[in-house]
């Protein structure tokens, strides 16, 4: 048997993905601490299968303006990862490093957008490295592509990909504690279904 859509994932599969997320987030927290030069912790991420409308609503509704960072994954598994950073998350990063909040997400300075891209880069690499080392795989990630726009419009990009294989997407909530206050970010993972088979196969989880 093989996995044809996200809907077919059972509790065990989700648990495995959560554990990967946990390790990945741990790596991300250390990397962020180094970048931001302040203590950074992370709570256990939640991993859920959500449909498009729910994912969009969870992210503040279709017209909410947020930053999207898209990373392509290739190698032993392939797919795409999309990070959504809300204005508060992005501003907390720039505040910490540059001393000022972002005035307009859709009109970021070059310094602001490269910082946000770097944060996305760090987080993406952390997750992917967790998967790669747990499953003994070679996985490459692309340089993140950044856009700031309506959440609904940003999500249409992975939506087109997951529409081919199902109605749901893997939705990961991260909650970081930076300098004693909590900030959240979200990640959407759109694996090719073949890749999920490969991943669970390597980890010895039956599909």
């Amino acid at each position: 048997m093989s996995i044809q859509s996200i809907e077919q994932l059972n509790e065990t599969h989700i648990d495995v993905l959560r554990e990967i997320g946990n390790i990945g987030s741990g790596n991300a927290a250390s990397a962020l601490a180094e970048l931001l030069q302040c203590p950074t912790r992370i709570n256990v991420p939640s991993v859920r299968a959500l449909d498009f409308e729910n994912a969009v609503n969870y992210l503040g509704g279709p017209e909410n303006i947020a930053v999207g960072l898209l990373v392509n994954i290739s190698g032993d598994i392939s797919g795409m990862m999309l990070y959504i950073f809300q204005e508060d998350f992005a501003s907390r990063m720039t505040e910490r490093l540059f001393g000022s909040r972002i005035k307009n997400l859709m009109d970021m300075s070059e310094m602001e957008s490269s910082l946000i891209s770097e944060v996305g880069n760090i987080m993406g690499a952390s997750y992917i490295n967790a998967i790669a080392s747990l499953a003994g795989m070679r996985i490459d990630v692309s340089v993140p592509m950044l856009t700031a726009d309506m959440v609904g419009a940003i999500l249409s990009v992975p939506a087109v990909e997951f529409a081919k294989v199902g109605d749901k997407v893997l939705f990961i909530d991260d909650s970081f504690i930076i300098d004693d206050s909590e900030i959240k970010s979200n990640m959407i993972l759109v694996p090719e279904m073949r890749s999920l088979d490969t991943l669970f196969g390597r980890l010895g989880v039956s599909v």
Binding site: E53, V56, G61, D149, G152, V157
Partner: peptide, 23 residues
């Protein structure tokens, strides 16, 4: 009208679809 959906109305009503990206 949600993503991958369709609707019709008659005057004076209005149809709306939010945040088209590549759609």
């Amino acid at each position: 009208v949600g993503i991958a959906d369709l609707k019709t109305v008659k005057a004076p009503d209005t149809l709306a679809t939010y945040a088209l990206g590549s759609c």
